[in-house]
């Protein structure tokens, strides 16, 4: 059953249009010119209950604006949106109890107090009894590997500990729809892995629906089977991550360590040269020419080591965005 419906969703922001320099400043002071900038245009999709969907796009593509419309923070300029049967912008209490929005670069915890104080406030705001709140805090703290950190002022916590405490605060009311905007932003690799594992576990345990934006492809590949790709405010892919990589990656990556250094021209006819750094060369080779190319590489160069793999997903998607930008 679909829990999120977006139909023809659009949002424009009115911004000042000012020319640089003193003349522009004076003109802007006396006759302010404004223009409407479309941030999201005609976006439609549905998300089934319990799905974990990745929302990808370059900076300024419209991901966060879409999330703000889905959570009711801003009113759409066009189209319709429905989340768990509610119109988000009405911000009815029952709707707000159903959702949460975690923003990696923003915090809701009170900076100078321990997270437990913010958690007490959240429990009271959502009407969770004190014993029940303690039980939920213990359960989530265990899943997130948080202990005495909850009793230290937020400002004294590391970025990873703070993010985990933010997640705890955002999930205390057991929302069934999670909007996560860059939840692992700035975290080290270990902390990223722990947050991903926690989110996967939370989804398994509660059946919550998750819409996730991230710049880290690791988040997307670890958590999402389905992705939405947005570019310049428009949705241009909605489907499985696996299909996307197959469709867009008819190549394999061949990485060789060579016994000598060669100029880039030496690799002409061996696929697309991705990088050449000293003795190490990375080539993108078409899948149907893989065997032949490898035999020729082995016979032409003194190959010390050779590795064949799928190119990283971020490279595939980056290529897709670059192609879309050119088009």
């Amino acid at each position: 059953m679909a829990i999120i419906h977006a139909r023809g969703l659009g949002k424009s922001f009115r911004v000042a249009d000012k020319m640089p320099g003193l003349g522009g400043t004076l003109r802007h002071f006396f006759a302010r010119r404004l223009k409407d900038i479309p941030a999201v245009r005609d976006v439609s999709f549905t998300i089934e209950s319990g799905e974990v969907v990745g929302f990808l796009g370059a900076n300024g593509a419209g991901k966060t604006t879409t999330l703000k419309m889905l959570t009711g923070l801003i009113e759409p300029s066009a189209g319709e949106v429905e989340v768990a049967g509610f119109r988000p912008f009405r911000r009815q209490a029952a709707f707000l109890r159903t959702i949460t929005l975690v923003m990696g670069q923003k915090q809701q915890l009170i900076w100078d107090l321990p997270p437990l104080d913010s958690l007490r406030v959240n429990a009271a705001v959502y009407g969770i009894s004190e014993p029940e709140a303690r039980r939920r805090i213990d359960e989530l703290a265990e899943m997130l590997e948080l202990g005495e950190e909850l009793r230290r002022p937020v400002r004294k916590l590391s970025l990873g500990q703070r993010m985990k405490a933010e997640l705890l605060a955002s999930l205390l009311h057991r929302p069934s729809v999670l909007f996560l905007d860059e939840p692992t932003l700035g975290l080290d690799v270990n902390a990223q892995v722990r947050v991903r594992e926690f989110l996967a576990d939370y989804n398994r345990r509660t059946g919550a629906t998750v819409l996730l934006t991230s710049h880290y492809m690791g988040d997307i590949t670890a958590l999402c089977q389905r992705v939405l790709l947005i570019h310049q405010g428009q949705l241009f892919y909605d489907g499985s991550l696996q299909e996307l990589t197959q469709q867009l990656a008819p190549y394999r990556e061949v990485c060789c360590d060579l016994g000598a250094v060669y100029p880039p021209e030496a690799f002409r006819g061996f696929g697309e040269l991705e990088s050449l750094a000293g003795h190490r060369v990375r080539l993108l080779v078409s899948r149907d020419q893989l065997t032949g190319t490898i035999s020729r590489l082995l016979s032409t160069f003194p190959v010390l080591d050779l590795e064949v793999s799928d190119p990283p997903v971020e490279e595939i998607i980056g290529r897709l965005f670059r192609e879309a930008a050119v088009a």
Binding site: K68, G72, L73, L96, L101, M103, N122, V125, Y126
Partner: peptide, 8 residues
């Protein structure tokens, strides 16, 4: 924004 997302 976080305040607006809570039922208070």
């Amino acid at each position: 924004s976080p305040y607006l997302l809570q039922p208070l």
